[in-house]
Each structure stands twice: as structure tokens, then as C-alpha cells.
Simulated scan of single mutants.
Amino acid sequence: MKDVSQNPVVIIPGVLFWDSLYDTMKEVLAGYISKERVVVAPVNLLDWIGFPPSPEKSTNGVMKAVDRAVRAMKRKFPDEPVTLVAHSGGGTVAMIYLLEKSFQGDVYRTGNQVGKLVTLGTPFHTHEYYAKIKTDFIFRHLQKDFFERCRVVSVVSDKYHGNHQGSFVEKMCYKFYQSVQEDGNVKGDGIVPAKSCFLEGAENVTIADAEHLPTPHTRWYGTKEGVEQWIQWL
């Protein structure tokens, strides 16, 4: 078995995904870390959509759920820094949470509660409207000294190549990649182009065989096969 950090872990779901979709990831991590040290932030679909629908405000609701989970972990393990594992757009929410700057009226003083953020298929560079609200905020406030208090590891798969003249799968990937960045003729995880996840100051890791969406019968980041490709950076 790989040598894995035993710090408590809070998993953050991706945009429009909910906590129970991450049960398998939690179970796999519990094979490396004791079960009580791994939780999924209690996020549901309504948190992402809002009521009435207000996706631009979803970050604030999700940050509240993340903060509750982090504080609960700190009560159980007061002397240990928490590791956040964030999937997809949950990674940009995690960055905003950790920046300690006011975002739409909310700011969290995380201090040294969180020692590491591992993102899985998180696009930090995007032209998608609602995602760009978050990434613009991040780059407006992100300073080099941030990485001195919190290590960031950005993991992404380059399993699928986008090609508008290729197979059906390649054409679909091309369209998905184009929704994130202008050039769809690149490699990525089927939804997010790999290079959109590269963040200066972070440790950028490309893995070979994982898919983005937490759907049945796929080898996504949260399956046993997916986790084993990035667990060493936990």
C-alpha cells in the first residue's frame, strides 16, 4: 500500500453534484486513512442552483457547507491540518474559501485549519460565465504567499483528445473543451481540458486514465482505479 498522509480529509463535490455521489471516493480513501477521518461536505443540488435559481450565488452556500465540515473535523482532530479534496468546480469554491477575502459578502478566516488542497479536474482558466466569476476573483486576490500556508495540488487527466473531425467521442470532447477554452483540439478528462487546470504556484499533476463525471461504469477520479492514480499527492 502507498504511503499516504493521515491528515483528516473533507471532500468537496463539483458543481451540480451532491454528496452521495462521492460515497465511493470516501470508501476508497478510508482504505488508506481511518474512516472517521474522511467526510464529504454536505452539499446538495439545491445548494448549487439556489431557490429561486441564482447560480452566481451558489459559491456562498457551498462555502458554508465546507466550513461546517472543516470545523467539525477540527473539533475531532484539533492538532491536525485538514486536507480538502475538491472535484471540478468545487476546487474554485475551495480556493475562494481559503483566500480569506470577501466574496459576495462572505469571508472565512481559515488560518492554519487547512494545510492542503487537492483539486480533481478543476479548471482555473475558463471563459464559462459562472465559472469565470470565481476564477476572476481567485486571480484578483491570489498571491504567492498563499502557497506557503496551503499547498495546492491540481490533478487532471488527459485521457481524451478533442477533435472536431474525429470519432463521436472526440467530437463531444472537442465541444466540451471549447466551452471552457477557445481551442477544443487538446487533451483532457472528457469534460475539462487538461491545460485549463494548470495553476501557477500549485503542483500540477497529469494522470493518464480518469474521467471527469461521477457516473456509473466509468473510471472517474473517485473510483478505486481513479483514486489510486492521485492518492500519493494526498
Rank of each mutant, 00 (worst) to 15 (best):
M1F: 05
V4E: 02
P8A: 07
V9Q: 09
V9A: 08
I11K: 07
L16N: 12
D19W: 13
M25P: 00
E27W: 03
V28R: 05
L29I: 12
A30R: 10
I33P: 02
S34T: 14
K35A: 13
E36H: 09
R37A: 08
A41K: 07
N44C: 11
L45G: 05
D47L: 06
W48K: 09
W48G: 08
I49M: 14
I49R: 12
G50L: 08
G50C: 09
F51C: 03
F51N: 15
P55M: 08
K57Q: 14
T59C: 15
V62P: 14
A65C: 14
D67H: 14
R68N: 11
A69I: 01
V70L: 05
V70D: 06
V70E: 02
R71Y: 02
K76R: 15
P78L: 03
P81I: 03
P81W: 04
V82H: 07
V82S: 01
T83M: 01
T83W: 03
T83G: 05
V85A: 04
A86K: 01
H87Q: 03
G89A: 13
G89Q: 13
G90H: 06
G91N: 02
V93G: 12
M95E: 08
E100S: 12
Q104W: 10
G105A: 03
V107M: 14
V107C: 12
Y108L: 03
R109K: 13
T110I: 10
T110M: 07
N112Q: 11
Q113M: 15
K116C: 07
L117F: 01
L117D: 05
L120V: 06
L120K: 05
T122K: 01
H125Y: 12
H125D: 14
H127I: 01
H127Y: 14
A131C: 01
K132W: 07
I133M: 12
T135K: 00
F137P: 07
I138L: 00
F139V: 00
L142W: 10
L142C: 04
Q143G: 07
D145E: 15
F146L: 02
E148C: 01
R149P: 11
R151S: 15
R151Y: 00
K159V: 04
G162L: 08
G162A: 08
G162V: 07
Q165S: 11
V169S: 10
K171P: 02
M172Y: 11
Y174Q: 09
Q178Y: 05
Q178R: 15
G184H: 13
K187F: 15
G188Q: 08
G188S: 06
A194D: 12
A194V: 09
S196H: 13
C197M: 04
E200I: 02
G201T: 06
N204V: 02
V205Y: 02
A210S: 15
A210I: 04
H212K: 05
L213W: 00
P214D: 10
P216I: 04
P216L: 07
Y221H: 00
G226L: 04
G226F: 03
V227T: 08
E228M: 06
E228Y: 04
W230Q: 04
Q232P: 00
L234Y: 06
L234G: 02
